[in-house]
């Protein structure tokens, strides 16, 4: 079993490394990720949102909807813990 998993992991890892070969060089300022969408945020952050911290302005404004989802995830986790852990102590007092 262990050798099978090891083989699986080596195959998966080499496939992932194969995929990295065509990626833009690390830190290349002209990589597509740095020239397509993100310059707009850097240029417009002050004008659109009056926020010097661009990460905050993207987090809470341009992509604020993701952040709402993020807080919902935390709420979900809290309710899950509430559901799973709270009542059991009372039900199973013998433990």
């Amino acid at each position: 079993m262990k050798t099978f998993i090891l083989a699986l992991i080596i195959i998966a890892g080499s496939m992932l490394i194969y995929g990295t070969q065509d990626m833009p060089n690390w830190g290349d300022p002209q990589s597509p990720a740095s020239v397509h969408v993100s310059p707009y945020y850097i240029k417009r952050s002050i004008i659109d949102t009056e926020t010097p911290n661009i990460v905050s302005s993207v987090l809470a404004d341009y992509r604020g909807y993701d952040t709402m989802g993020e807080t919902t995830v935390i709420f979900t986790a809290a309710i899950v813990c509430f559901l799973l852990l709270r009542r059991r102590d009372e039900d199973e007092g013998d433990r």
């Binding site: 993701d66 989802g69 993020e70 919902t72 995830v73 979900t76 309710i79 899950v80 799973l84």
Partner: peptide, 21 residues
């Protein structure tokens, strides 16, 4: 595409909780 991931996790986490109960 990223928003899909966020909602996928909301759905999955609540699903885990419901199944574990």
């Amino acid at each position: 595409l990223f928003n899909v991931f966020v909602f996928l996790e909301i759905a999955s986490l609540s699903c885990y909780g419901l199944i574990a109960s």
